[in-house]
Design a protein around this nucleic acid. Sequence first.
RNA 1: UCCCCGAUAGCUCAAUGGUAGAGCGAGCGGCUGUUAACCGCUAGGUUCAAGGUUCGAGUCCUUGUCGGGGAGCCA
Length: 460
Amino acid sequence: MNRVRINELLQRPEAGGEVTIHGWVRTCRHSKGFSFLEINDGSIIHNIQCVVDADVPNYDRDVKALQTGASVRVTGRLVDSPGKGQRFEIQAKDVHVYGNAEGYPLQKKGHTMEFLRSIAHLRARSNTFGAVLRVRNVMARAIHDFFQSRGFVYLHTPIITASDCEGAGEMFRVTTLDAGDPPRAEGEIDFAQDFFGKPTSLTVSGQLSAETAALALSDVYTFGPTFRAENSNTTRHLAEFWMVEPECAFFDLDDDVALAEAFLKHIFSTVLSECPDDMDFFNKRIDKTAIETLRHIVESPFERMSYSDAIEILSKSGKSFEFPIEWGLDLQSEHERYLTEEHVKRPLVLTDYPRDIKAFYMRQNDDGKTVAAMDVLVPKIGEIIGGSQREERLDRLQERMKEMGLPEEDYWWYLDTRKFGTAPHAGFGLGFERTIQFCTGMANIRDVIPFPRTPGSAEF
RNA sequence: UCCCCGAUAGCUCAAUGGUAGAGCGAGCGGCUGUUAACCGCUAGGUUCAAGGUUCGAGUCCUUGUCGGGGAGCCA
């Protein structure tokens, strides 16, 4: 089809020439003798205004009947607009209606995010969600660009896992057994008869697989869907979300922190430079500090602090917190928020947490109390990155697993990587949707993914 | 899972325990440059569900469902 995108039209240096656009009517205003149609094709947040005079052949039958949401093809001359509010407009000479939209639920007036969520199949046609999807796309590309330009290998880790050992998080069971009448052996469900011959679940992390690849290819990253069956009902949790997990061999915690900082800054500066119109929209309508915040972060170094120092700052803060502050206890949301929003007012990297509140695979520090862990905290969202240097010493890893009651036989392949040419290595995980939230200022994580999956909700 | 708040027209909301309304949207008409256009008219309701109190319930009570905010859970 003869088709030009609206973003290309709007970026032309000057008017002139005949053009054909395709898109959806965002709003139309009819006067006696002519109509204004504003058409959007999703290529850019802005609409193009089309002026349709009544001498267009199907004017009375089609054009006057157009409703918001209708799909059209418009051909006409691209001219300078005499009106205010737009540079160019199309003086239409042919309008074809693909489909009208009687009863279309979206209006040109603003809608609540809750309502848009209830029509998630149509909300990409709203300004806000269109902008979210375009920014999401640019961020995904920025992530690949960042790693690819540094020689990282994009690794596809399995979605289905038989490792019951990926973590303490609740997992979604994957099975082909008859849920109503599963085969049993001695009273227990007989997973030997299941598709994989053993219990399987959706992955909660690709990290353990990524470690095996990093210990071969040196630098790898994963970027894929991740699943958590936690009954979490918050603005920051999804049951199905996307996670980025780089893993690097011959890397220590300092390298890991530096990588995380460079990585976030690359994503943010890419969004600023490649999504100016969408970011303007977010800045005007969603979060008046969105652009300023991103600029500030790109330009200033991240604050870095040990867990122990954070505890000291919190206990001397004079703030009254609901949860106690004591060395050895995990930080609560209120503590993280105070540190990043009030104390340093920018992203904060916390390192060297007590080993008893962290995972078995994190490298034990020489003090015998802490591990080489790091969390990147950002204002409003909280934890956006969690990572660590991994324990590469076989004996220390086995010792820690024993203390935590993890059976070695379940991890035989993971332990093999420490037996055969082990190497210091580190990595982290980035919550993709939380990062989109941070860039756009969108308050609810359900509004930065096309079709959110949350407890009790898997619509669309 | 816990605490708090909410559910009324397609959407956003109003209505002292006493006749359910407005704006937008929709339909019809008007208007020769509009910009969330403007002007006039019309249609549009099981007030989330079930039960209860009351002469009378959108309003008060109970339970449930759904949604929102906060917290927890969460590699």
